[in-house]
Design a protein around this nucleic acid. Sequence first.
DNA 1: ACCTTATTTTGAGTCACTCAAAAAACGGCC
DNA 2: GGCCGTTTTTTGAGTGACTCAAAATAAGGT
Lengths: 157, 157
Amino acid sequence: MSTSAPVDASPVGDQLEAMLRGTGLKVTQPRLAVLRALQGRPHISADAVVALVRHELPTASLQSTYNVLTALAERGLVRRIEPAGHAGRYELRVGDNHHHAVCTRCGAITDIDCAVGHAPCLTPSGANDFSVMEAEVTFWGQCADCQNQPQQNEATS
Amino acid sequence: MSTSAPVDASPVGDQLEAMLRGTGLKVTQPRLAVLRALQGRPHISADAVVALVRHELPTASLQSTYNVLTALAERGLVRRIEPAGHAGRYELRVGDNHHHAVCTRCGAITDIDCAVGHAPCLTPSGANDFSVMEAEVTFWGQCADCQNQPQQNEATS
DNA sequence: ACCTTATTTTGAGTCACTCAAAAAACGGCC
DNA sequence: GGCCGTTTTTTGAGTGACTCAAAATAAGGT
């Protein structure tokens, strides 16, 4: 291999490296692979991330993927959400405090930019002794696909 | 035993029975015990419920407690919440869609009546193809106790 | 009191992680 | 470019919080 040229410059590769360096994290293949897996895949599970990472790094372990995701989340490079009854999911969209809609039928998750101009519900009434740092909103309902799906019955007789 | 008088009429015992009957559930000792455990204990975990239930029903199993809690939740007699990173918790306060504040330090949970007059965030912008049934809000921050606690440092040197 | 069905108990199994120790990879420095 | 100390990753085991299934028991209508 050449010594000066990047081995395999994938698009925006340097950008991902910059993200890592910016938070004081070392640039490693597993970390870059995880970031690439997250790109364009909002709300991906740890399992799915490992699967993708293994395409490029066949030896990647589930454990290291958790390590990476946790490290990235701690530095604010990724956000972790965990809708009730679901495994944790990770997304690259951070900084804005957007919310999520979870389909109670198929589990699909979609991003929701909160309609209310200013942070909604950020000033809870009562409980003034509680200092709120963040308000997380989860919408439960049915996604477009499931609404168009036939009713789910017990038997199909 | 007498045939007409209740064996051991605990306060509001009949009320609990009525709740069960009202939803078509049979009245059983485990169910009454679980309901009693939930009374006055908002946000209690399944583990804690079994412990309490065993005071009156030493043979109660964890499994049956889960069965009961799930059955009660399905009929709307109890609400189950599951803040990210925490085990599920159950509460008797249902019907109003109140929210919760979770302390990121000690895990304490407090109820929050949403300040906004009309259901907040219930009309998510974008994603009009998603039909929202419920909006769940979780506030993350610090409870009164933890705010008054000294800063949590690495070492105490 | 009986009988059918709903519940509870017993016992095992799973999912989604987490802990710890050993091996490998970064990257600043010479 | 090679060395070295520290950070990461791998390997392997362990845990919490439930869930599944079959057998035993309890409700409650008749």
